[in-house]
Design a protein around this nucleic acid. Sequence first.
RNA 1: GUGGUCGUAGCUCAGUUGGUUAGAGCGCUGGUUUGUGGUGCCGGAAGUCGCGGGUUCGAAUCCCGUCUUCCACCCCA
Length: 456
Amino acid sequence: MAQKPSIPKGTRDFSPLEVQRRQYIMNTIKRHFELYGFMPIETPSFENSDTLMGKYGEEGDRLIFKILNSGEYLKKADVNLLETGKENQLTSQISEKALRYDLTVPFARYVVQNQNDITFPFKRFQMQNVWRADRPQKGRFREFTQCDADVVGSDSLLQEVELIQLYDAVFTDLKLNGCTIKINNRKVLAGIAEVMGAEDRLIDFTVALDKLDKIGKEKVQEEMRSKGIDQEAIDVLDPVFSLTGSYADKIASMKELLKDSTIGLQGIEELEFINSFIDNSSLKSAALDLDITLARGLNYYTGCIFEVAAPDGVKMGSIGGGGRYDDLTGIFGLKNVSGVGISFGLDRIYLVIEQLELFPDSVRAGVEVLFINFGATEARYCAGLLSRFRESGIKTELYPDSAKMKKQMSYADRNEIPYVILAGEDEIASGKLNLKNMRTGEQSLLTVQEVIDRLS
RNA sequence: GUGGUCGUAGCUCAGUUGGUUAGAGCGCUGGUUUGUGGUGCCGGAAGUCGCGGGUUCGAAUCCCGUCUUCCACCCCA
């Protein structure tokens, strides 16, 4: 019985057109990565579990795809752990490898492992797939492609400035106007928690605050109360709920709120510095927006954090994100190496560009000319010409079978091949080719060289 | 991980309160007097109605399970 063909949940096949369009986006991103001085690296699809586990928070760990050990993995495992509720320990006994969840953590691992060969500051870019055991939705897949650029070994805020400009340059080049680059700083969030006297509730507090634009002030306060943050602390937070105005206005209000928090003020200073380099007029198509409610779940961020929202009217989660991580390499044993990076979500950018119909027609690049096959003799004659065409850089194809004319013409039409060459008995005798323009229907009898000149 | 939703030919879907050999459009394929595509006309192939159980004389239709899709949480690209 025939097996029903299928692919796993949250994965996709890509058609020729889709691949060409993905490559168009990737080539654009890559070009700008290189212009900004980033060098490519690649890392394995899977890592040792302990490289990945514990870097993304509890939620992230749950979404990491684990790879079952080979061989008699069950015989070596202590099954009793399941009954005593120590499932995590059992998991680590039967699974020692996992698919990478992002590109940042493997990169940190790479940096530490190759530190002797790396000259700092090290700027690398990486465009590879990552996997998350999430429940799929639109724009949300279990296998997707991230395009990351990171710098490690410099704590200069100029890196943040450059990365913002890099975002803008890429989106401008993709004609994706109106993206919003949201920025915040973990130090500011820590400062707010400090001022509230809720340092120990930092995570609960940021998770709740993050939902402000979604569920509103009342609900956010309610959630904070339910997490055990007292009313007095929530009242302190009040100015944050009503922040308005420009980047500079928000900075001014926050400065006042955080006047007693060293770390908070430090965060504000960083944001101020960045804004002094990038007022919105210096960005070509994107807008930089200070969003104090931006939290981001990834545990390793310590300074500035970024998230990119698609243009208004497009319903899509963030199409990019990133931030500064001061001690990610420290986890692997290399201290005092600060890093900062951004990520482009290829799959979501694709969906946004598709929805806005911004893919250039030129992306579709197939065969340029098809030789019609009239039979064995004629085909042999045409076959001799193919390499001449190809050497001239013309994408050329000879129909493989001497099928009916209608079928061959229809093939050219379907594949949007712009020219067809008819070389039958008469043409061969005259030493010329009959070139047909499929768009206009016009036909002309030309020499081989004339045809090549016209097409190349 | 929680709650909901969808699943019928390659694709988009119809299928009345469970009742004979399950339909349409598009696509595919063949023909339309044989060297010309995109629109015409005529014919053809193709579905164990997601999968597995159950109820029934009888199930695409009702029930349970499972997988998949999409959505809201959660989280994120």
